[in-house]
Design a protein around this nucleic acid. Structure first.
Lengths: 242, 242
DNA sequence: GAGTGGTCTAGACCACTGC
DNA sequence: CAGTGGTCTAGACCACTCG
């Protein structure tokens, strides 16, 4: 038989993609509960087990969070657990520290070839650039330079950044409706230039971690390009190889 | 009701732990197929769906690999995919490169306080230390210093290392019956010392990635402590934030 | 065609949450 | 207590692999 089913997709994946669409369309906001499994099963005319399998996958991708006895909720960056998923920096000597973001600058520019390529924009499209320092217990540890599509983040300014308490991604989510789903990081070791050294209070030429991150929202659409320089004098980047 | 079930464990987890025991006991070797789901269901007197859920979890933890139509197999480090799970280094400019391990030294020593703590040994217990260089297309990129429990790896020598083709973990698995399940890495930026700089053909003081890894086998038993120094002149450490 | 894992269903019951 | 997710079962059928 010359049978091939190049586009075979099981029912639960179709359900998954329907739920995804609803999520993307904002039918339920981050932190809110989605309908119960039985309700969704009725809505899509499938069995509860099929809905369950769809939700299982989405929970394992950190899109939804299940809570027994309560319901299934849209994941949110307001949840502290999400924070550690995207900032893998921990103190060398165990303890837990309070971190704080200190915005330095925020300006608009036109996308150059690299930013355009990474963010999927056209050359010259508007972008917004943020520079900020991340402190751990009042000591500066990270300098970030963040490139964002100007359209998506219209209205972002130093003032908005200064007002907001909480993580950047939490702000992006609540103020601009952009939820970061996943990211890739490329890590290298570099020598501190003069201005970065000043900001991080290390000597010029000190080794720093260069962490280049691309973050994606629904549908694998890149919406953030970020370069961070991490001082690893008293912290390290923690990674689990599952 | 004052009911609490502090040790409640669903059936499928008990099955999982039975399969884990069999795996640990070596009932099926890496790369071999385990019995079919129906067969296991009979053996444990549960339904096939319960076995399935146990295997699902173990597959998602990279302990087992499912292959439709063929069976379920014990994961092995001989599989090239396993290799990339533990070495997240890629060329800066896309391409794929052949990597090769070049052993430098292999000697025995007594565990100092740090090695003893990390590897769960007693002070003075025998350990084996390996130094090696990792090349990508004949260029040296990584220098590793690897601490292993002497008992577990009795018989490891420079000769054994030189004879063997394939990854270290593949050797550990086939020669010593030790399968690495997971690892944690702590990454920092450091300046190259003289001897490392020579080996990696960079200038003394150049920024390098310091990657400290602890690898665990079944039962979360630590069996390897390793420190690598990575030259990131032409490569970078790639990490996915799921 | 026989055997494997993969999907889907329907129904029963358990564990947890909150009113 | 009602409602939620979590577990377990049994059976039917599909997709893939191999001889």
């Amino acid at each position: 038989m010359a049978q091939v089913s190049p586009t075979f997709s099981p029912l639960y994946r179709q359900i998954k993609s329907l739920i995804l669409q609803a999520l993307e369309a904002g039918e339920w906001r981050p932190g809110e509960a989605i309908p119960s499994e039985t309700e969704l099963a009725g809505r899509f005319s499938v069995s509860q087990g099929t809905v369950r399998k769809a939700i299982d996958e989405m929970a394992s991708e950190n899109l939804l969070v299940r809570r027994q006895g309560k319901g299934t909720f849209v994941a949110t960056h307001s949840d502290p657990r999400a924070f550690f998923r995207f900032l893998r920096l921990v103190p060398l000597n165990g303890g837990i520290e309070q971190s704080r973001s200190v915005p330095l600058e925020c300006w608009r520019a036109k996308a150059g070839p690299e930013a355009a390529r990474v963010l999927g924009l056209k050359l010259g499209d508007p972008i917004t650039i943020v520079r900020r320092v991340l402190q751990f217990s009042t000591k500066p540890v990270v300098v970030d330079e963040i490139y964002l599509p100007g359209e998506t983040f219209a209205g972002l300014s130093l003032e908005v950044l200064n007002e907001y308490q909480g993580s950047l991604y939490s702000l992006f989510e609540s103020r601009f409706g952009v939820r970061m789903i996943r990211a890739t990081e490329r890590i290298r070791a570099v020598a501190a230039d003069r201005s970065t050294a000043d900001l991080l209070k290390v000597r010029e030429g000190s080794p720093l971690l260069s962490v280049e991150r691309i973050s994606y929202t629904y549908g694998d659409r890149p919406v953030e390009w970020r370069r961070g320089l991490y001082s690893t004098a008293e912290h390290c980047y923690l990674n689990d190889l599952g």
